[in-house]
Design a binder for these strands. Structure first.
Lengths: 191, 191
DNA sequence: AAGCTAGCGGAGGGGTGCCTCCGGATGCAA
DNA sequence: TTGCATCCGGAGGCACCCCTCCGCTAGCTT
């Protein structure tokens, strides 16, 4: 990671004039909604309409479809990884569980996005690194405290949990119950 | 379910002439490959090309995109649910685990398909019933034998496991390791 | 062998989405 | 206030895909 935890400069194209910045932000927000609603197939013209700008403006900020995907994705990842800091004061197990809950909530709406990006993407890799940098310490701490089994890595946990979020749950209660089962699997073998 | 566990007649349009049946089967196989490769967005013209038939033939068998999706999906589900019968002789825990392994292998390639269908589909519901009919007995048996916790249902397990398969794993070893963690979560609380 | 009919292929109409381009509008500095 | 560089909007070219339609082919029956 570069200094100060900056996002990779691959898409560092934030405009300078006030109105332009407003549009840029509106576009990201609109894109997030559109992708969550219609999946990755959402049309860019629809995104522009939601943002209340012309299609030309969209393309000036994001030269193509993928750039927009990536920008939205990066934005989300950074919010998540920042949130890990708040949890440092909780007991190890609780901190890990709390962060994983946030993780679930985060990924749930990003299905389509991830699907689109994981084919091949520089950004995707660097985002994963950012997430891991945020969550891995919570995991190590829990392992050091003896409340999580030693024979698995953080990567395993992420996949277990993120998979969970891909499934559609009829109720939040069930989602939490299943998440609970998965978390039980993380505990060390019977003390 | 109708008698003899037939698939719902919603799409019971299997052609009768020999060449037609060949084409029908080739189309299903081609569609399965195309969807696995390019996701749900694969073009139907590409499917027809892979199957070595004209686009007209595709549309005669499957009036629209969704019908083709459903036909492929049903075909897969039936293969899976049939496979549960082989496992009756294993010990309860082993039988459940073995079936869930097959389940994972099955869902892994069906991501795009499921994504497309779960929006709203009669077929999807009835297929789920078929899967549940196949797997639920294995689960009950394991619970009766005391090797699976009592406070969860088969539905919870399916979602836990199927979610798992949505995640992309770099190696089969990791996939199995993570699956193992999930399965540990199914065991009863420390005896 | 011959006819009937189910089935075949693919051209093409209609529609949608991606992205480019450029004349006009507007924030910002002096 | 004035001027200019930046930014805006959306018409339209291009490509792709869905699905229909119809003249032709070839299994199946007798």
């Amino acid at each position: 990671m570069t200094s100060a935890g900056q996002a990779p400069e691959v898409f560092a194209r934030r405009p300078k004039r006030a109105d332009a910045r407003r549009n840029y932000d509106a576009l990201i927000a609109a894109a997030r909604d559109a992708f969550a609603e219609n999946g990755a197939a959402a049309s860019l013209e629809d995104v522009a309409r939601r943002a209340g700008v012309g299609i030309g403006t969209l393309y000036r900020n994001f030269p193509n479809r993928r750039h927009l995907f990536e920008a939205v994705y990066v934005e989300e990842v950074r919010a998540l990884s920042r949130s890990a800091a708040d949890l440092a004061e909780l007991p190890p197990w609780d901190a890990l569980v709390a962060w994983l809950h946030r993780f679930v909530a985060y990924v749930a709406t990003k299905r389509a996005l991830a699907e689109e990006l994981l084919h091949d993407s520089e950004i995707f890799r660097s985002c994963r690194m950012e997430i891991y940098a945020a969550g891995e310490p919570l995991m190590s701490r829990a392992q050091a405290a003896g409340v999580v089994r030693e024979d698995i890595g953080f990567d395993d946990v992420v996949r277990l949990i993120s998979g969970l979020t891909m499934a559609q749950f009829p109720s939040p209660e069930q989602r939490d119950r299943v998440l609970g089962v998965a978390l039980d699997g993380l505990r060390p073998p019977a003390a």
